[in-house]
Design a protein around this nucleic acid. Structure first.
Length: 819
DNA sequence: GAAGTGGATATACC
DNA sequence: ACTGGTATATCCACTTC
């Protein structure tokens, strides 16, 4: 049989002691196809330099005889070959040792305690990754495949009969082709329960959205509500859900925080009610694996938890303060969740249920639309990293960098480095920090007509330019090498291109290429591809400094920061030498007023600068800005770093670091500061904004400010009991516990500071929950929220605090006097 | 018990 | 455990006089 095919979900099984890959995907005609394939199973033994040919042959014969009986399997070495390979950039002789089962490679490697062998590598990639590298059946790419159909066959123990697919094919040949645009079939789902703790309460309803399906299944309050389907009880609810999933047979089952809530909840309730939650294509139930977080896998259907992907791929560029579905959907779709105040189902009035159903349905609608929106990114991530969607949608960026490397090693004839084990990891973690980026101390003030330059992929370009990696680090000083001094110690890197910097060079080039193509002819896929490469380039530096990395190199990471620091300082000097005056710089950006120069002169100068930069280092214009403001730190007279506001020539305001952008300040202070900054930037003076602040303070004093504007939000980052220092939000969390409001690690705790009868000094003793009765503490909000947010800004104009709070211009003593 | 200081904590920047 | 370091600011916890 011959068909086109796009691989979506990979897993593997053992049959008669051997490993087989099972790939589930689709044809362009929408048929569900499962293919079975296998690949050579092997790892590498790297030989010591001095071992001669004769010894190698003897060793190979010895190794070829290895047989082990592990975990009830008889595994044996099938074949041994000698190869010339590279390991960490060095030429090595290595034995390629083939065995019958991937899972036993580690055990076989353990048997190889021969003197001739230096290292054993390539047994810890995971069979799926190993297979993809070997056979190049890449996820989310189109193939023309051919092979024999298994139809009620006993090959593989009759597995084809158990799988609910259109075709079950034993793969013989696969050829990559340009396929059509793939539009996956998905179900977005969401559940509502009585308790938050997994499995503790009943599941009241499940909503499902798919193409042509929009449904809430429930066993609760009946009535004539649109899109609601009734079943008898919770058990039937689960069965019905299962039935729909099977009927639709989606490629992806998509949820939001569904790894941590919806899917485990369904499983737990199914167990409790003795219902089989047979969602898998073979009728199997979802399986969970525990890393640091729970992940839920369904055989043949890719379970996607959008929250996880959004965290790694978007969160750093997002405005949302939390990654709640409500906020994220608001930002991506301009659409929000429906209003619903959660309460136990026993307390829901008869007329409340319709709202609850609508609420539940809307959540699935949002998940469905969110998926549609970010699908191009998921797809391109999978293609770029060459890893299945299940993996890339959950992995962090360091893992993605590593995937990219592993799938491209063979271009360099490289044997993969192993993952670090526990001991090595703790050793790396204990090394402490190295010196990082340079931040220029600004002189506080309001500046006009500014230019901002920044380095494109600064650290990535630095790694490429100076060839910085584990394999290019030289042990001794060499003449023709890249050298950097870090606090007295000199580090040398070879000029012979290493595979890591070379891969990164390609990543940066591809990113530029796709960005160019995007400009000419934009579409979502090009945008996604360009973005995936951008994220990869940006994560490469962090990867080398990450203790869990296979290609960890603290020296390379520290040198990257040091080289970049040295260069940006040199560039600042060059800019100053051109009669500009740099006023600020952070890591890879430089800001300076144009002074007497024109924009054109500045752009010409930028060109000249670029011609002088080493390697692939490149400066670009971030923008011209009409005005910018820098303030002092709270304590001293020195300029505050990482805190400024700019007004672009395009009218856009860019605010960094100020309380405005910090979620742990109350809305009143944030909004007021934002307005003040905008007023000052557009007018060039403080007059108008000062009046505005005085008005605000008056309102506060008259209690005319709504309590909702005074709610402070702080994240509870660990369990309440683990806190050594009991700060206001910890007290608020404790109060919530007492009131039986569920609180857990990671929650954003809301509270306000209230008036108290007793005179207490500690802020935490004035904490009240938003729903608690009480008057807000005027003094606290004035002195700890409103004034601190604007004091430093007005200071730039010589306006002092007393000028802000004293509308008559007279010095006042205690605040209470004029309150 | 007030004042000063360092530590713990949260959040932002790049 | 699941990229890195730099920086600001708040409030608590503790010491000192």
């Amino acid at each position: 049989m011959k068909t086109d095919f796009i691989p979506l979900d990979y897993d593997y099984f053992d049959f008669q002691g051997r490993n087989y890959i099972r790939i589930i995907g689709r044809s362009s005609k929408g048929k569900r196809i499962c293919i079975i394939d296998s690949c050579p199973v092997f790892f590498w033994a790297i030989l010591k330099d001095e071992v001669d040919k004769e010894k190698i042959e003897k060793l190979m014969r010895k190794i070829a005889k290895i047989k082990i009986d592990a975990k009830g399997r008889n595994t044996r070495v099938e074949k041994v070959e000698a190869h010339s390979k590279n390991f960490l950039g060095k030429k090595v002789r290595a034995l390629k040792i083939f065995a019958t089962n991937y899972k036993d490679l580690h055990d076989i490697a353990d048997e190889l305690d021969f003197d001739e062998i230096e290292k054993r590598r390539g047994y810890d990639l995971g069979f799926i990754t190993h297979y993809i590298i070997e056979k190049k059946i890449l996820p989310c790419n189109w193939y023309e495949i051919s092979g024999g159909i298994l139809n009620n066959s006993l090959e593989f123990g009759g597995m084809d009969m158990a799988f609910n697919v259109d075709f079950f094919i034993k793969l013989e040949k696969a050829e990559k082709i340009d396929g059509v645009i793939f539009k996956p079939k998905i179900i977005a789902y969401d559940i509502e329960t009585d308790e938050i703790q997994i499995g503790k309460g009943e599941i009241l309803m499940i909503s499902l959205i798919s193409d042509g399906l929009k449904k809430v299944i429930t066993w609760k309050k009946p009535g004539k509500f649109p899109d609601v389907e009734y079943v008898k009880n919770e058990a039937e609810l689960l069965e019905k859900f299962s039935e729909y999933v099977k009927k639709i047979s989606p490629d992806f089952l998509v949820g939001y925080f569904s790894d941590g809530f919806d899917l485990p909840y369904l499983k737990a309730r199914a167990e409790e009610l003795k219902v089989k939650l047979d969602l898998g294509l073979d009728g199997s139930e979802p399986k969970f694996s525990r890393g640091i977080e729970l992940t839920g896998r369904i055989k043949g259907i890719v379970h996607i938890d959008l929250l996880k992907f959004i965290k790694t791929a978007y969160s750093q560029y997002m405005q949302s303060e939390t990654l709640s579905l409500n906020e994220v959907a608001g930002e991506f779709l301009g659409e929000k969740k429906k209003e619903w105040k959660h309460k136990h189902s026993s307390k829901i009035e008869d007329d409340g249920w319709e709202k609850y159903y609508e609420y539940n349905l809307q959540d699935s609608v949002l998940v469905f639309r969110l998926f549609e929106k970010i699908w191009p990114d998921i797809l391109e991530f999978s293609r770029v990293m060459s890893e299945p969607i299940f993996e890339i949608s959950r992995n962090g960026m360091s893992k993605n960098v590593e995937s990219y490397i592993l799938h491209h090693l063979e271009n360099f004839n490289e044997i993969p480095e192993k993952r670090a084990m526990h001991e090595e990891i703790s050793k790396r973690m204990n090394l402490g920090k190295y010196e990082g980026a340079f931040v220029f101390e600004p002189t506080p003030g309001l500046y006009e007509n500014l230019a901002v330059f920044d380095f494109t992929s600064s650290y990535g370009s630095t790694i490429v330019t100076y060839n910085l990696s584990k394999s290019t680090l030289l042990e001794k000083a060499e003449k023709d090498a890249h050298m950097i001094e870090i606090s007295g110690e000199k580090f040398y890197f070879s000029k012979k291109p290493g595979f890591f910097p070379e891969m990164l060079r390609e990543i940066i080039e591809l990113r530029k290429k796709y960005k160019r193509e995007l400009k000419i002819n934009p579409d979502a896929i090009k945008m996604a591809r360009s973005n995936a490469f951008k994220l990869l380039a940006n994560a490469a530096y962090g990867y080398q400094g990450f203790f869990g990395a296979r290609y960890y190199s603290r020296e390379a990471a520290a040198s990257t920061a040091a080289f970049a620091k040295k260069l940006i300082k040199e560039v600042i000097d060059l800019i100053n030498a051109e009669k500009y005056k740099v006023i600020y710089s952070d890591t890879d950006s430089i800001a300076f007023p144009l002074g007497k120069k024109t924009e054109k002169q500045t752009l010409d100068f930028l060109k000249k600068l670029n011609s002088q930069l080493p390697g692939i280092m490149e400066l670009e214009l971030e923008g011209f800005f009409k005005r910018g403001i820098w303030v002092t730190t709270r304590a001293g007279k020195i300029g505050a770093k990482k805190k400024y506001a700019l007004l672009g020539n395009d009218g856009k305001v860019k605010i960094r670091g100020f309380e405005t952008v910090r979620r742990d300040w109350c809305p009143l202070a944030r909004k007021m500061q934002d307005k003040v900054l905008r007023m000052i930037l557009s007018s060039g003076n403080e007059k108008e904004s000062l009046e505005y602040v005085k008005e605000t303070i008056k309102k506060l004093n008259k209690r005319k400010i709504e309590k909702s504007e005074l709610i402070i939000r702080t994240q509870l980052k660990k369990a309440i009991l683990e806190y050594k220092s009991i700060s206001p939000h910890v007290i608020a969390a404790k109060k919530m516990e007492e009131m039986k409001i569920p609180v857990s690690e990671g929650n954003i705790i809301e509270y306000y500071i209230a008036e108290t009868k007793e005179k207490t000094k500690l802020v935490r003793e004035k904490v009240k929950l938003p729903e608690e009765e009480g008057e807000y503490n005027i003094e606290y909000y004035l002195e700890h929220q409103v004034l601190p947010a604007v004091e430093n800004i007005f200071q730039v104009f010589g306006v002092e605090t007393k000028d802000i709070i004293d509308e008559h211009g007279k010095k006042q003593g205690k605040l209470s006097k004029w309150m």
